[in-house]
Nucleic acid binder design. Sequence first.
DNA 1: TCATTATCATGAGCGATGCTCATGTTAGCC
DNA 2: GGCTAACATGAGCATCGCTCATGATAATGA
Lengths: 221, 221
Amino acid sequence: MNARPEGPSGPLRRRPVQRRSAERLERILDASARLLEESGYGALTTREVARRAEVPIGTLYQFFTGKDALVAALAERNLERYLARLARRIECEAPAHVAALTDLAVEEFVAMKRAVPGFGVLDFGVVGPPGNRAEQHILDAVLDNNAAVAQRLGTLIGGMLESREGADPEGGADPSLALRVAMECADAVLQLAFRVDPDGDPALIAECKRVLRRYLAPGPG
Amino acid sequence: MNARPEGPSGPLRRRPVQRRSAERLERILDASARLLEESGYGALTTREVARRAEVPIGTLYQFFTGKDALVAALAERNLERYLARLARRIECEAPAHVAALTDLAVEEFVAMKRAVPGFGVLDFGVVGPPGNRAEQHILDAVLDNNAAVAQRLGTLIGGMLESREGADPEGGADPSLALRVAMECADAVLQLAFRVDPDGDPALIAECKRVLRRYLAPGPG
DNA sequence: TCATTATCATGAGCGATGCTCATGTTAGCC
DNA sequence: GGCTAACATGAGCATCGCTCATGATAATGA
């Protein structure tokens, strides 16, 4: 799924072929992340990013189709890093039930919010971006960002999330739908947790885990 | 709480005193809502709003301190309308338990998403606005928008939401915290529901109710 | 009634933004 | 060296949010 034959970042105008170009692209992404971390989304201007990355503004637009694409590429890099880290932790700790797994996912997310520059602002893509809706659909051509995340997570955790008993009589809840909903909730609550407290409000992080546990637990309701 | 001695919309630069001015202000808000509904947040430019409202751009800035304030005022108007409608329905149907009440709140929210222009994009305030963080704190000087909503909702539903048993041993979960978290989740899932389907995906709306029911239900977990 | 003053309305224009594209520069090959 | 294709560059364009000098209008006093 989500085959990306043309490289690590979908909406690239030109893919860096030479080593030097690739480094420049990485520099641009890093500069964006740092700027985001330091001054927030409002300060993320293409001119400033280019200045910090020490590339002329034109070069930025050789790689990215626009500011949206730059942001999307950064979100995608964040997602890749998160999935890699989560996969390692799942492998290490081998959680037995859904609750342990969601706790793990939340903890890893929180860890990245604290550690990775710009992750606190963007994570996997601004959910309510002001501009054109197109921004949301760059990670995956059809699904929006959180859906793509849910999909990737779904393959990661396998069939651990079976359809819950006691769900709608017309066939039970779709596990992928549940995952999607859980993603959306977790994102929202954690976003709040880090808006309230730069280090992530512990009470809200706990509540996030509780929401997920209760929502994803088997049983009626 | 949240006393607003200076009028219906906090960040107004000048409050309309004459009838004609008040109508102009309302026209500006209506134009914003229509524009939002038709073309989304990205098309919401002050010039276009002024053009549609048939006021010169300067007049817009006589009332509002800036674009953020305009958006916030619209969000606030949405909130007032929602709370009024919800209060009426609660009065009519007198829900006995939390589940019935949250269902009601969700249904009324969905109804407004369908009926009120611009509500689908804004509802009570863009959660992840690109620009300065200030935009979030206009509805209430201290709390962000969803928190203000949660607070107002809290007074509306009274003590129906008691602290759940089996919560943290160190004193039980704070009901207002729970309400806040529930708000955030509901907002996120419903936002998704209307992103997927302009009329609101029924399955996602149902899942939203389920999330709230499960999260807010008494009992351990 | 007409000055005078205070208030409101107006839109040209400012700085900044996202982005383009003509022009200059380099790399690779014969 | 001459030629060509690929890349790098930043002045400049349209548009944005927003201001503020100027003109219109209402209120006040004699």
